[in-house]
């Protein structure tokens, strides 16, 4: 695949595996012979804070940062985090969002409300029509390990056909970061994610 530059923004909450996803995706992009750049949140913010990783690959990428409005795909492991960075999206941006919401501690005590999923949907529809939600946690749990949520989401990227990476390379990259005893369950999570992505692509947006 000849791609000049592909920009993916992956967001989530500290501890959800955003950095691991950046590792996996950049390795897969390398295997597919692209030039790769990422920029990631490390350090203090990981302690339950918002994390973001920028991933860029293609034949014409130099720096790691994505300008606002120029993101091809936003992959959100937590739904409200997709709203936080919404201005990185343009009308063509595809959102793939895990439906779960992690409410930060102390929000209610500080007299603040945290948005609900319906509000998030309504808002993001104004930003882009390419909006896909996925019950990542439920699917991962049904596969047998809630920690496969990221892999389900990566599978869905392939199923949706929104990332110019080969299915085989992405699977290889995923497995390379896991001990062999976890390979089977993650292969399964990846396949189910792909199916889910295909289903979403065919289905309409509510």
């Amino acid at each position: 695949m000849e791609v000049k530059s592909y920009n993916l923004l992956n967001v989530g909450v500290g501890g959800q595996g955003v950095i691991r996803a950046a590792q996996i995706l950049s390795y897969a992009a390398l295997l597919d012979d692209y030039k790769v750049r990422t920029a990631e949140t490390h350090g203090m913010a990981q302690r339950g804070g918002s994390v973001a990783s920028y991933l860029r690959f293609g034949t014409e990428v130099e720096g790691p940062l994505i300008p606002r409005g120029k993101t091809n795909t936003i992959l959100a492991f937590e739904a409200s985090e997709a709203v936080r960075i919404f201005n990185y999206a343009g009308p063509e941006t595809v959102f793939l969002i895990n439906e779960s919401i992690i409410v930060p501690p102390m929000i209610h005590q500080m007299g603040m409300d945290y948005p609900k999923l319906t509000e998030i949907r309504t808002f993001l529809k104004e930003v882009s029509v390419h909006l896909y939600f996925i019950e990542g946690v439920e699917i991962a749990t049904s596969v047998g390990n809630v920690r496969t949520m990221n892999v389900v989401m990566l599978g869905a990227l392939i199923g949706l056909d929104v990332i110019p990476l080969k299915k085989e390379t992405l699977e290889k990259a995923i497995l390379s970061y896991l001990p062999s005893k976890l390979h089977d369950i993650n292969k399964k999570a990846f396949e189910i994610g792909i199916e889910k992505g295909i289903e979403l692509r065919g289905g309409s947006i509510d």
């Binding site: 913010a45 302690r47 339950g48 985090e81 930060p104 501690p105 603040m112 808002f123």
Partner: peptide, 10 residues
Amino acid sequence: ILIIPPRLPI
């Protein structure tokens, strides 16, 4: 704009 309260590290 839907305002998302900050997620401070804790």
